[in-house]
């Protein structure tokens, strides 16, 4: 198939950037390619023409590392549900399609180059409290605390987050609440995480606010965009935990 791409090109964080149109480079595209392989092919052709290839993040290319990050025709990771950009395949498109590719857009995710953004803000949120403070060596036997299957499954549902930031990209307010809440829910749900639940919730929400993300107005676009199907109910859990911690924690 032949396609027309409009790709956001931006030299570095300071550059103002703009869209570039590509048509010659996107001819004879196989429907079996993944979306990132399309970009690989375009890049090979650009280099052969002596132009700079399109910079984009990707690593595992099997939908688990959370590195790839691009908004494809107005949707983070593109049109398929529960699918990262690397797992999106060109069967999703047809000959003659026009595709817009943009980076994640958020103040807290500054563009580094073209489609690559800096997601350090997500690390900062985890560093604020997304852990259980147990030193290596002091752990009790793993079966010493029983954890019901329902609880373990609920924690696992939240823990499935791959930290790609699609929730932020999809949110009309560029809010990181789904990401933050998923981590808080994962840890707070498990008995191991309970001793620090209040402090964790306060600290992580605080870090999220400090990073300059927007607020949640319950559009649920985050839930729709999440490649790992994290449910926005975790945000409600976080809201409850935050109120409890704010009102009771000394």
């Amino acid at each position: 198939m032949n396609l027309t791409l409009y790709v956001w090109r931006q030299k570095d964080a300071k550059d103002s950037g703009g869209f570039e149109k590509y048509t010659d480079e996107c001819k004879d595209i196989s429907e079996h390619m993944s979306f990132l392989e399309l970009l690989d092919v375009v890049n090979e052709r650009l280099i052969e023409k002596g132009k700079m290839p399109i910079a984009f993040d990707s690593d595992c290319r099997e939908g688990i590392c959370g590195t790839c990050s691009m908004v494809i025709n107005g949707r983070p990771h593109g049109p398929w549900k529960k699918t990262t950009a690397c797992q999106l395949h060109m069967r999703a498109f047809k000959d003659g399609d026009v595709i817009y590719i943009e980076p994640w857009r958020a103040k807290s995710f500054p563009v580094l180059q073209d489609l690559m953004v800096d997601r350090k803000a997500l690390d900062d949120i985890v560093q604020a409290g997304g852990y259980i403070s147990t030193n290596c060596g002091s752990a009790p036997d793993a079966n010493s605390v029983q954890i019901g299957k329902e609880i373990a499954d609920a924690a696992m549902d939240a823990a499935a987050c791959i930290g790609c930031g699609a929730c932020v990209a999809a949110c009309p307010n560029a809010s990181a609440m789904l990401f933050t809440a998923a981590k808080i829910s994962h840890m707070n749900t498990l008995p191991q995480g309970k001793p620090e639940a209040g402090k964790r919730t306060l600290d992580m929400v605080n870090a999220m606010d400090q990073a300059g993300f927007g607020n949640c107005s319950n559009h649920l676009e985050c839930e729709a965009a999440c490649p790992k199907d994290i449910k926005a109910t975790v945000i409600a859990e976080m809201n409850r935990a935050y109120a409890k911690a704010s009102l009771t924690k000394r």
Binding site: V71, Y100, E102, A106, P172, A174, G214, E223
Partner: peptide, 29 residues
């Protein structure tokens, strides 16, 4: 206050936006 903060959280807007779960109601609050 929240509208201002939200607007500031995305200084560069998208060229294309497709919505999936948000409603007319949520977008016009």
């Amino acid at each position: 206050r929240l509208s201002m903060l939200n607007s500031a959280a995305r200084p560069v807007k998208y060229k294309k936006v497709k919505t999936d779960k948000s409603s007319f109601a949520s977008r016009t609050m």
